[in-house]
Amino acid sequence: MMIRVQTADFDLNAELLQLRQGNPGIGAVVSFVGLVRDINDGEDISAMELEHYPGMTEKALEQIVVQAQARWDLIDALVIHRVGPLLPLDQIVLVAVATRHRGDAFAACEFIMDYLKTEAPFWKKEQTSDGARWVDARESDDQALQKWSSQTQAKDIA
């Protein structure tokens, strides 16, 4: 498992190659790359700045991956999250999961991203034509997280 919080951009191809390199047991790699959009809630966004709590953020990301490892048979996982100033089209986050089978890879990647959006200590400030504004958590992110806890409850009942 590799967790990195950094200001520098990342090379998607190089990161995925490193994740799967040397392990012939890997049958699937699923990745998600999040990008800075130029519009949010109907307003033009000229830039964004991401802040985090060093040390605490990495531990939170690590715990999210550990939770995914407990649910699915992961061979490896990678989470890279950028901080600092970013512009539209810049890469923000990479979540990549390597497994034996695609079903585990898709589910684990989605799980990690859903938890990252709601549980990791990042703060986002957008620059709009009206000035800077802090971005609040989205109800849709909380709803995405709820599906995972309802799946756990269903497994516990069965």
Rank of each mutant, 00 (worst) to 15 (best):
L50I: 15
A132F: 03
Q67L: 11
E43N: 07
R71C: 07
E139V: 06
P88D: 00
F106L: 10
E15G: 04
K125R: 01
G55N: 08
E58I: 08
S140A: 14
R100K: 05
R133E: 05
D41V: 07
A68W: 04
W123P: 08
T118P: 01
W134L: 01
V33P: 06
Q21H: 14
E62W: 05
I112G: 03
I80Q: 04
I92K: 08
C109G: 10
K124L: 08
K147C: 11
D73P: 04
G103A: 11
E139S: 07
G84P: 11
Q6H: 11
R4W: 11
V33S: 12
G27D: 01
N40F: 13
P85H: 06
R82C: 10
S140E: 15
G55F: 09
S149R: 11
E119A: 13
V29I: 14
Q21P: 08
I45R: 07
I3L: 10
D136W: 05
K125L: 04
D76Q: 14
A70Y: 06
L19Q: 13
R71Y: 07
Q151W: 13
N13Y: 14
P121F: 05
V30I: 15
W134A: 01
D141A: 12
A60D: 02
T99A: 06
I75Q: 09
T7S: 15
S31Y: 15
Q21V: 09
A107Q: 09
V135W: 01
G84Q: 02
D73Y: 00
R100W: 01
L145F: 12
T118I: 03
T7D: 13
A70W: 05
L78S: 08
D141F: 11
D114H: 04
K155V: 08
L145E: 14
T7C: 13
M113H: 07
N23R: 14
G84V: 10
L17H: 15
D41L: 11
F122Q: 03
A120P: 06
A98L: 05
D90M: 08
A154W: 13
N40P: 01
E15H: 08
F10Q: 14
R4S: 13
A158C: 15
D44L: 02
M56S: 14
G55W: 05
Q127N: 04
F111C: 02
K125W: 00
L16Y: 12
G22F: 13
L61F: 02
A28W: 09
P54K: 06
I26G: 03
V65N: 06
V33I: 14
M56H: 07
A28S: 13
M1F: 10
K125E: 03
T118E: 05
H81I: 02
Q67M: 04
M48K: 02
A96F: 03
C109T: 14
I64G: 00
E15P: 05
E119P: 00
A98I: 01
E43C: 06
Q127P: 02
V30D: 10
K117T: 05
T57I: 10
R37W: 10
T152M: 15
I80S: 02
M1T: 11
A98R: 04
L94I: 09
G42L: 08
H81T: 00
F32I: 11
L145T: 12
Q69R: 09
K117V: 03
Q67Y: 07
A98H: 00
I39N: 13
